[in-house]
Nucleic acid binder design. Structure first.
Lengths: 130, 130
DNA sequence: TATACATATTATTATATGTTCATACGATAA
DNA sequence: TTATCGTATGAACATATAATAATATGTATA
């Protein structure tokens, strides 16, 4: 009696578990699998876009796409605390999306790469269409 | 004696506060300000990229850029729980980045727009270069 | 109708992320 | 040197986010 119940339960569980791995269209699945990049590359790609997924960073990037700027001016532009701006600039720097140079006490930031401008524009193009 | 200390402290604080709004290069700041999109548009842009900033969603999008797929096959492809996949598909759907159609019990998802493919490729191009 | 199946949704939990505060660092000027 | 300015950093906090478990929904079939 407990045996039967267990069997049933296990069966249900099994089906449910299998469901998440049941393949409906094997052909398509295999074709897509063959074209999927390595998992690491997908992570890197997500991490890249993650940088653009914050309005503070987007604003900084857009500003820098117009002109090299120092931290203080960015603070004034965005009306944000210097600390907050610095933190975001650090993230952008680490991702090699911006570069900086020091001139006395002032540190100037700039887009590292023209790729970034293109990504920004493509994105803006898309979001404005809809 | 406590008076002097207070004065000093207040002074320091004041200077620090002002610093975040002190403008060093007024010309540049004004030029950039003139080119900044409206704050709402920058938020939208960040929200758009935020969608791409997760490895699960990126994987889904890459897969869909190869072929329309149903939820079950996506689960198998990504080796993830059906619930988790559905959650991400919902986010993608709400952002109008994917569309879906129902055929009996099965729901198929596809990229909504060829823009998305271009964004993915541009990003991958960038991340693979470095 | 009852059952099974594919997908969606809700609530919960764990983790990630952005801002703030306080403080430190590096460069210049007094 | 000391003081000041511009910037960077660490810790703490609040919020956002993704995965899970449980359950609901909708569709087809017995």
């Amino acid at each position: 009696m407990p045996e039967k119940t267990l069997d049933k339960a296990e069966n249900t569980r099994k089906t449910a578990d299998i469901c998440t791995e049941r393949i409906i269209h094997r052909r398509i699945l295999e074709a897509v699998q063959a074209e999927m990049p390595e998992s690491k590359d997908l992570y890197d790609l997500a991490d890249f876009f993650k940088i653009f997924g914050d309005s503070t960073r987007i604003s900084i990037l857009w500003a820098l796409s117009e002109s090299e700027m120092c931290v203080c001016d960015l603070c004034a532009l965005l009306d944000m605390k210097q600390s907050a701006v610095s933190h975001q600039l650090r993230i952008l720097k680490q991702s090699r999306i911006v570069s900086n140079r020091r001139e006395g006490k002032v540190v100037y930031y700039a887009l590292d790469d023209d790729h970034i401008r293109r990504v920004l524009n493509l994105g803006m193009q898309h979001t404005q269409e809809k």
